[in-house]
Amino acid sequence: MADGKVAVALTVNGERREALVEPRLLLSDFIRHVLRLTGTHVGCEHGVCGACTVLVDGAACRSCLLFAVQANGAEIVTVEGLAGPDGALAPLQQAFRDCHALQCGYCTPGFLISAHAFLRDTPDAAERSDAEIRSALSGNLCRCTGYQAIVKAVRQAAPAYREAGLEERR
């Protein structure tokens, strides 16, 4: 009974996915090993580093702190879901590139998802203080950059989100 697999059906980056999973399978491992979406990275696997952050029903969450079975019926967006359908970088991704906001890149998927959620929910992010942007990024650890360039990239991407938000309300 304990090893009985459970059926899950969820939407990942707009695509319907179904699988049979062990209850103990972490969502992060499900995304990487079952769905083969290896953009989501696993760092600490106990909720500290933020590398595995994904959107679950629109909310940024650690995918290593959820079981795949708990995502049944949910809508997941991973870093692969940020770029356009033609693979064109989203404005946030382009800003990371422009500002050298990554070096080894291991933490980047998590930063992108966290920053995406912050910018989406904060239309006036460009006018916010560095301290506020840093606070929004404090749930993600980067060991290379010293964060300066990441804060800069988030600031650079902010107007694109505001315009997209205005577009949506029209």
Binding site: A59, A60, C61, R62, L65, S114, A136, S138, G139
Partner: peptide
């Protein structure tokens, strides 16, 4: 609440 972990944790 701003002192409780990070927003990604508070979302869940």
């Amino acid at each position: 609440l701003p002192h409780v972990a990070h927003f990604q944790i508070r979302n869940r």
